[in-house]
């Protein structure tokens, strides 16, 4: 039986893992490859590396990181952060990434999704969508959730799916960092609306939240960062809990 996936997300800056709350008070959290290996050994189903470096050298350091991760880690991993065109994707996939994730670049140039899917296959193209509710309507935001767009989240998710996205990584900016649970309602809407897997992100604070997002939220996978980094919840403990709650989980 296909299992629900637990995905730790590692933020990377200049080749090092950083952790902080909502991108402030960042501190060094060690080597991303070592940390990824530890998560893999603990039973993480996939990893996401999100590069938040903002320099011109970015792509080179990211390719170096992907190479090191691919050599060491024996589970699938996605890499995202500033990817904008087919050449970026090619460099990262050739270095050993399993999937790439694009966010703002897709909003800016939706055709990039078609081009990437046609060139490399939908299975490796994850479209990340940051969503925020404004007066009762869910709008797509870019630039780490700071910049609102005129795109409505459900319509945009449908559009990128039609353009060839293989998975949607949906982050609710209303829930992110608050630890009050995932955005179950919109996650469930997207999961029912679309024929591709939905990875829910933003809001994990306790183990029950994962159960809720997999049941009420109909998510295929759940992503979290700080609760794993700060060891508030361990992956083996979370997986045991979810299995006891009757969910299909990889042991």
């Amino acid at each position: 039986m296909l299992t629900k996936r637990i995905i730790p997300c590692l933020d990377v800056m200049n080749g090092r893992t950083v952790k902080g709350v909502n991108f402030v008070q960042l501190r060094d959290a060690g080597d991303p490859v070592e940390l990824g290996s530890i998560y893999a050994q603990e039973g993480a189903d996939e990893l996401v590396y999100l590069d938040i470096t903002a320099t011109v050298e970015k792509r080179k350091t990211l390719v170096d990181l992907v190479t090191r991760v691919a050599k060491t880690v024996n589970i699938p991993f996605t890499v995202g952060g500033g990817i904008s065109n087919v050449d970026d994707v090619k460099a990262l996939l050739n270095a050993g990434a399993d999937k790439i994730s694009i966010n703002s670049a897709a909003v800016k140039n939706p055709k990039a999704v078609d081009e990437m899917a046609r060139e490399f296959g939908s299975q490796c193209i994850v479209v990340a969508i940051d969503t925020k509710n404004i007066d009762g309507i869910d709008f797509v935001h870019t630039h780490g959730g700071r910049k609102p767009t005129v795109l409505q989240t459900r319509e945009w998710a449908k559009e990128v799916t039609d353009r060839g996205a293989g998975e949607i990584l949906l982050t609710s900016m209303d829930h992110d960092g608050v630890k009050n649970g995932f955005a179950n309602e919109i996650t469930a809407d997207l999961s029912s609306l679309l024929a591709i897997p939905i990875i829910a992100s933003g809001g994990a604070g306790k183990m029950e939240h994962f159960k809720e997002v997999f049941t009420a939220g109909k998510a295929d996978a759940a992503l979290a960062a700080s609760i794993f980094h700060f060891k508030e919840i361990s992956i083996p403990e979370l997986k045991r809990y979810l299995e006891n709650e009757g969910l299909s989980i990889r042991k």
């Binding site: 939908s122 299975q123 024929a195 996978a221």
Partner: peptide, 10 residues
Amino acid sequence: EKVPHIGWNN
């Protein structure tokens, strides 16, 4: 069901 079949299965 969702296609592609993505993830861990036994």
